[in-house]
Design a protein around this nucleic acid. Structure first.
Lengths: 141, 141
DNA sequence: GTCGTTGCAAATTCTTTGCACCTGA
DNA sequence: TCAGGTGCAAAGAATTTGCAACGAC
């Protein structure tokens, strides 16, 4: 279990209360959240942080790979999450927008072919799977 | 070969000069383009279209599935392309931002598992593979 | 003490909207 | 004819920036 202090020190970023709050928030929330949700969370926990600071913090933390930015095409918003030790993808429900983590990743099955056939050096990938979660599917009936 | 007129008629959308121009542009450009690139293209071909109209056209054409919207996380911009008869994904170069279409799709290999294990009804998916294209890799040397 | 970080307000960028006019069917 | 489409200008939302004050090391 790493404290925000330790994490920040490890990547040579100064410790600040704001960065700690944001890291704690993301650890709490567990799933990817929008900037708005992050802002709301801080407010509702009596630790309001200026929006510019939130954006700047997201920038610096993602540059040093402590957090990960993605884009949710259903809600059309930028999402942020703590970088986890294990590679993850999500199922996104088009109805309730919940993001369900899955462990599997289909990439490795085509990685070699890509690097080979297209002479393309793969750095990373983003996968978003949209559909209907079980809960919302049952509500529809 | 379908003319814009035919395409629009098929989906019950009125033919207009602007819609035709945009469909032609996307057919010409072949790869996904940003709204800005689309706008530039129209301008430079002596067919400037008001930006609101471009946005509105993108909306209506994507609703009827004539075009496809996606998000490029490298350039952080919304991309638009003509819907193709064959399912496609792209390799995105982090350096020159070129988008290289690939034919393969790794999804089918995990689709069953997802629908089964997660009780999730998959509608669609987005995959973006970032890295370095051969051209940019050689320039780096 | 220094340099990076923050808050605030203003600027910028991207996208949407209201409305009068226009145009395709 | 007339419902739907367009241009324009203005509004909105999301994000970035300049700058003075502040805080970590």
């Amino acid at each position: 279990m790493n404290t925000p202090r330790e994490l920040l020190a490890r990547v040579n970023l100064k410790y600040t209360r704001q960065r700690e709050i944001i890291l704690d928030a993301l650890r709490d929330l567990k799933v990817p959240v929008s900037v708005e949700q992050l802002d709301d969370y801080c407010r509702s926990h009596a630790h309001p942080i200026n929006l510019s600071t939130i954006y700047r913090t997201i920038d610096s933390l993602s540059q040093v790979n402590l957090i990960y930015k993605s884009y949710n095409s259903i809600t059309q918003s930028t999402m942020v999450e703590l970088v986890a030790p294990t590679h993850k993808h999500y199922l996104v429900c088009v109805e309730c927008h919940s993001m369900i983590p899955i462990k599997m990743c289909p990439m490795h099955s085509i990685l070699d072919t890509i690097e080979h056939d297209y002479e393309f050096e793969v750095f990373s990938h983003q996968l978003e799977i949209s559909g209907l979660c079980a809960k919302c599917a049952s509500k529809r009936k």
